[in-house]
Design a binder for these strands. Structure first.
Lengths: 232, 232
DNA sequence: TTATTACTGTACGGAATCGTTTAGTAAATG
DNA sequence: CATTTACTAAACGATTCCGTACAGTAATAA
């Protein structure tokens, strides 16, 4: 509103306009958030109360209220912070050189490593319980997580189509199928604590078989399969 | 223990050994359970408290304690009741006559109709939050639900192999892939309230494409594809 | 009828939180 | 210095829920 810098360009480093009184301690903010996350990770939303967070962060309860309006507000921030980590992890998925098959497998390995990790599963569980109360959170995560990843994978396939390594096909659908096969039934199993985490061998096999299935389905018409079954 | 009927055969209808005092009112038990389920369905585990259940069931709080020892005990029973419904629904999946493709599609339609329904999603959410507290629940549901379904699907494929409609292959793996493709990324999306429920058209398309992918991958060697691309 | 058991209603003590208030201390600006 | 803002510690009233207790009513068997 009453912006003292109407040029729109922030001069050098943001105007260090020290507000007037004692400056807010960013450390506290971080500590609270960290405590909240830690607390949640070791006991679910149940154990996430303002008072517990204040205790764990070695901070006055009032300070918590000063930084985060509500308990819902705090939860929201926790989830959003988690989201940031998550999307960062997804952005960092490999753009391996090498053949398409190898690239897909590499992609799948990294992705599944992430999806079967505690960090992600916990976030997922939190979202599942919050689905009712904070309906806007789900779509946000879904779009930035699942859909974005699917699109990324689809682009990988699309690129191969343009290079002639694959026949033209519905890449988005193929990406979805691939993701589905990678996850199989185990993802939900992990979510409900119904099965142990997959061994690397099982995971790798599932990923490779999925990739091969997709690749063979959309391989170029030439009967001599050359780009799909080469490198191990 | 002090069984008055040591023959093991229950004479006619179970001995109506009226216990001595006022008989327990089965109605109450059912009412409590129903109230608990309803209550959970409209507010998550959060809103599931002994007092709320007693209120909703029009029953004294003491009665609740008489029928279910604990709050955890009540939750346990709620989940187990839900499991019973669930497994029943899965048992009832169709054994359509007709061709393999049609049978698989029918199977997929019914299954996905179930998996994307509120009943199932809510159970899933409940389990996701309870994964920490009641570790034995997850495996139970997972085995009777996901794994049993997968095995059932695998048997369907296996039978086709024996009939010669499919080449020999790892049927269990194929079943997992099929289930994965059917669920795609949307199942978890639904769980976290991240996306709207799929339209029947989308669902049907996803199911059919998955089936076709699997079938074409394991079709018998004959180049004349006859059993896969027929009927629409 | 009497004994026995199921259920009701109400109340209690204890605990955990919530969100707010108050009074005081700490750190910065002018 | 005075002012302003951030933070602390402690307490408060309110709410909710737990699990239990008590006194009384209802239904059934002996």
């Amino acid at each position: 509103m009453s912006n003292p810098n109407p040029t729109g360009m922030t001069a050098a480093s943001d105007p260090p306009r020290r507000a007037r009184g004692r400056p807010p301690d960013e450390t506290k903010h971080a500590a609270i958030l960290a405590a909240a996350r830690a607390l949640f990770f070791s006991g679910g939303l149940q154990s996430l109360s303002i008072e517990a967070v204040a205790r764990a962060a070695h901070v006055s309860k009032v300070t918590v209220y000063a930084h985060f309006t509500d308990l819902p507000g705090l939860i929201r921030k926790v989830i959003l912070a988690q989201r940031t980590d998550m999307t960062a992890a997804l952005e960092g998925l490999p753009k391996t050189p090498g053949g398409l098959r190898q690239a897909l497998i590499e992609f799948g390995l990294c992705l599944m490593d992430f999806l079967t990790g505690d960090e992600f599963l916990t976030l997922q569980r939190m979202l599942a319980t919050q689905a009712g109360q904070q309906p806007w959170l789900g779509p946000l995560i879904y779009r930035e997580g699942a859909e974005a990843t699917c699109a990324k994978l689809a682009r990988l396939l699309e690129a191969s189509v343009e290079r002639g390594d694959l026949r033209p096909h519905d890449s988005l659908q193929a990406a979805e199928q691939l993701l589905g096969m990678w996850q199989g039934i185990q993802t939900t199993g992990l979510l409900i604590g119904g099965c142990p985490p997959p061994t690397p061998e099982v995971l790798r096999r599932r990923i490779e078989c999925g990739v091969d299935l997709i690749l063979s389905a959309h391989a170029p018409a030439s009967p001599a399969e050359d780009s799909a079954s080469r490198d191990s």
